[in-house]
């Protein structure tokens, strides 16, 4: 995974609470067995006036002019601004793949659903929670066109006027993201520790190790 140190980009506001992963990536696109190419389908039901499917070319569809992310002012945005409980519902990682493939590298929201939050970091997307007041302030600014610098190294968001907002992130998440570490490879560095644990666990709880057939 590519390292994430700092990112500068345009903010696209999505002024809705509780945006669920069914809305982010509708069911028909979960049939695919690939991991990229979901960008044209993110927010599908809201984004287009006609209904879509895997085999329909998104360029042939009619965009919904009222949908916030279709506004000309937000084209090319790479920072998504959202409200509380963003990404709730289904665990489908396709939702994060869609947002990533749309070009977003950062999501800033009041809060995130747990599984979605993990999925973001596993795909190189930085998910940042701020207070409701800070989010409100950013929504106000985003209407006028807002570019932010998100500095993961310093854990700050820098506003155009030089003011900054500090954000919290678990130190290990930050470290992994800064270095672009692969989670599986990192865990496998502890291969022997896992093996020893597994041996002891099996000795204490042999009934968890019955072979299924």
């Amino acid at each position: 995974m590519a390292a994430f140190i700092s990112h500068q980009g345009l903010v696209a506001p999505m002024d809705r609470a509780n945006v669920d992963t069914d809305a982010i990536m509708p069911k028909q696109y979960l049939k695919c067995i690939f991991k990229t190419g979901y960008g044209g389908w993110a927010f599908d039901d809201w984004r287009y006036l006609d209904s879509g499917d895997v085999e329909i070319d998104v360029n042939s569809r009619r965009p919904n002019p009222d949908f916030e992310l279709n506004q000309p002012a937000y084209q090319g945005a790479s920072i998504l601004l959202a409200r509380e409980n963003f990404g709730c519902g289904s665990s489908r990682e396709h939702a994060v793949w869609g947002i990533r493939d749309m070009g977003f590298r950062v999501i800033i929201a009041t809060s995130f659903a747990d599984i979605f939050y993990n999925n973001c970091f596993n795909n190189g997307i930085l998910a940042i929670s701020l207070t409701a007041e800070q989010i409100e302030r950013l929504f106000g600014l985003a209407e006028l066109g807002l570019r932010l610098t998100v500095d993961l190294d310093q854990t700050v968001i820098v506003l155009p006027d030089g003011e900054y907002m500090r954000f919290n992130i678990e130190p290990k998440r930050r470290e992994k993201m800064l270095q672009g570490l692969d989670n599986v490879a990192t865990t496998l560095l502890q291969r022997e520790v896992i093996r020893i644990f597994e041996g002891q666990h099996k000795a204490t709880h042999p009934y968890y190790f019955l072979t299924l057939r």
Partner: peptide, 11 residues
């Protein structure tokens, strides 16, 4: 998520 599915399969 699917990345975690892969992680559990592998580790």
């Amino acid at each position: 998520g699917t990345s975690e599915v892969e992680h559990v399969l592998a580790t």
